[in-house]
């Protein structure tokens, strides 16, 4: 069973898929609702304190905006724990969304730098691609069982 980092980390669907196929999802599974009534698209369910951005200094220097560092205090430890990763590019907001493009760039960089098994997929745009999308994730996760003891 591998610890699989997910991007977008807020994707409930990805998180569910990973768990179904017997692995541990590393994600901040949040429900992206039809109506947005919170400060951001992926507002955290927990109250982050000003300590968050300080903890984030481990992954981003002090001149990096506090919002990036605050996010990194959540996602940084997940990246460190990750034994594999699934990255979905250009995902629809309803699939999972992370509000800050700069954090997204940093997360993508750090996870790619780790040299762990990685699945890089485009978000599907029709049913056919959708079926192949799920199949590709299944193949990747099945393959992990052998790779990660």
């Amino acid at each position: 069973m591998a610890k699989v980092f997910l991007y977008p980390t807020t994707s409930l669907i990805l998180s569910d898929l990973v768990a179904r196929f017997g692995h541990t999802p590393l994600s901040a599974a949040l429900q992206i609702r039809e109506r947005i009534q919170t400060p951001g698209l992926e507002s955290p369910p927990l109250q982050i304190t000003p300590e968050g951005p300080k903890k984030g200094l481990r992954w981003a220097a002090v001149e990096v905006p506090s919002g990036v560092r605050g996010r990194m205090s959540l996602y940084g430890p997940m990246i460190e724990d990750a034994e594999a990763a699934i990255i979905i590019n250009n995902a629809d907001y309803s699939f999972g969304c992370m509000g800050c493009a700069r954090t997204n760039e940093l997360i993508n960089f750090l996870i790619r730098k780790k040299n762990i098994p990685l699945l890089d997929l485009e978000y599907p745009s029709n049913d056919e691609e959708g079926v192949e999308f799920v199949a590709a994730i299944k193949r990747f996760l099945d393959g992990l069982s052998g790779e990660v003891a």
């Binding site: 400060p39 951001g40 109250q47 982050i48 304190t49 506090s66 919002g67 605050g70 996010r71 800050c100």
Partner: peptide, 15 residues
Amino acid sequence: AQLSCGPEYSGVQKE
């Protein structure tokens, strides 16, 4: 009306 990016992850929404 608040239009923002990042206050909750900066820990300042409460402020």
